[in-house]
């Protein structure tokens, strides 16, 4: 029995020695200089950034911040290859902005970027909300949060509307437990996952004020501005082109007016509102074609959205009926 364990130990020791030697060899081969331009091209970072530029309309401040972050990470990596003193930079981020400003989309791109730079191993995005992290009874929260964290290891954990985790009105709320586990993992497993918190700007600010631990562990605060009317129009065109729909010139004018009116009405959600408007316009167009068309339809007619399809929206009559009624009673 003893002989067996001894040989095993000896072999382990030998293997460890061999391991040390290979590490030594790597040190000897360390390059003397790094070409950042080449790194930028080879790592595929350029593709991600160009992708971002092409697919996302507007959002200039966000793109600038991401470019800055990418530059920092590239330089950090170059420093590491040259053997300069470096520590894994804190990569946890917070995305603040109104609904429909592209936070989830950018998070997805960010995951790809971090993967290419080698800061996360797998580069997948796990998107969760409070319900996925916080349990319903005592002892339920910790395993639930851990489960999600395990799933997100090697990738990016995106917590949408993160401020719901903290409910100050109920001191026995289980959200606090989830927050503590999150903070611990954000600190101890910085090499394993990146956490992105997202939500409305003012409520996130409140959340960070009541949980200072989060603020200090998050290095990058990125703000997502609202889209301008022109940008929303461009987004609408982009969406329609993506699904092979075209707008008639009059429909385009109607859509511009729609965007202006919709912005002033409640529950405006930027690009998401536009997507919903587009979906409803498709519905009306299909209905119109079905009821009016006689004989064969060509591709052009099937993909044309007309003025009527957009003008029929309730937005032109002042919003949802309930909203209109409420405003009238107030008056």
């Amino acid at each position: 029995m003893n002989a067996g364990t001894e040989t095993a130990e000896m072999e382990t020791a030998e293997m460890e020695k061999a391991g040390v030697e290979t590490v030594g060899a790597e040190v000897a081969e360390r390059p003397a200089s790094v070409d950042l331009r080449e790194e930028y091209e080879c790592s595929g970072v350029r593709e991600v950034l160009e992708d971002l530029d092409r697919e996302l309309i507007g959002l200039t401040p966000v793109k600038d911040r991401i470019r800055e972050t990418a530059a920092l990470l590239l330089v950090e990596r170059a420093r590491a290859t040259l053997g300069l003193g470096h520590e894994t930079p804190t990569l946890h981020m917070s995305f603040t902005g109104n609904p429909g400003t592209g936070k989830t989309t950018v998070a997805l791109k960010m995951a790809g970027l971090l993967k290419r730079l080698g800061y996360v191993r797998k580069g997948h995005l796990v998107s969760v909300t409070r319900d996925d992290l916080v349990g319903q009874y005592i002892g339920h929260t910790a395993p639930k949060t851990r489960e999600v964290l395990k799933r997100a290891m090697g990738g990016v954990l995106f917590i949408d509307e993160a401020y719901y985790l903290y409910r100050p009105d109920n001191e026995r709320d289980y959200g606090q437990e989830a927050i503590e586990i999150l903070l611990q993992v954000m600190e101890n497993n910085r090499d394993d996952l990146v956490v992105i918190l997202a939500g409305y700007a003012d409520r996130m600010e409140h959340f960070f004020n009541s949980n200072p631990g989060f603020r200090s562990r998050i290095a990058h605060h990125i703000e997502f501005p609202d889209y301008s009317d022109d940008e929303l129009m461009a987004i609408a065109r982009h969406m329609m082109a993506g699904q092979s729909y075209t707008l008639s010139p009059r429909a385009e004018a109607a859509l511009a007016e729609y965007i202006r009116l919709r912005r002033a009405q409640p529950h405006f959600a930027n690009a998401r509102s536009i997507r919903n408007a587009f979906d409803r316009a498709r519905l009306r167009q299909a209905n119109r074609l079905f009821e009016t068309a006689t004989g064969a339809l060509d591709a052009a007619r099937l993909s044309l959205i007309d003025e009527g399809d957009i003008r029929a929206s309730r937005v032109f009559r002042g919003g949802l009926d309930s909203e209109v009624a409420r405003r009238e009673t107030k008056r």
């Binding site: 090697g154 497993n189 394993d192």
Partner: peptide
Amino acid sequence: DLRDPKGVMME
């Protein structure tokens, strides 16, 4: 539903 061995190593 894990993607990375780290989750198993934690357990």
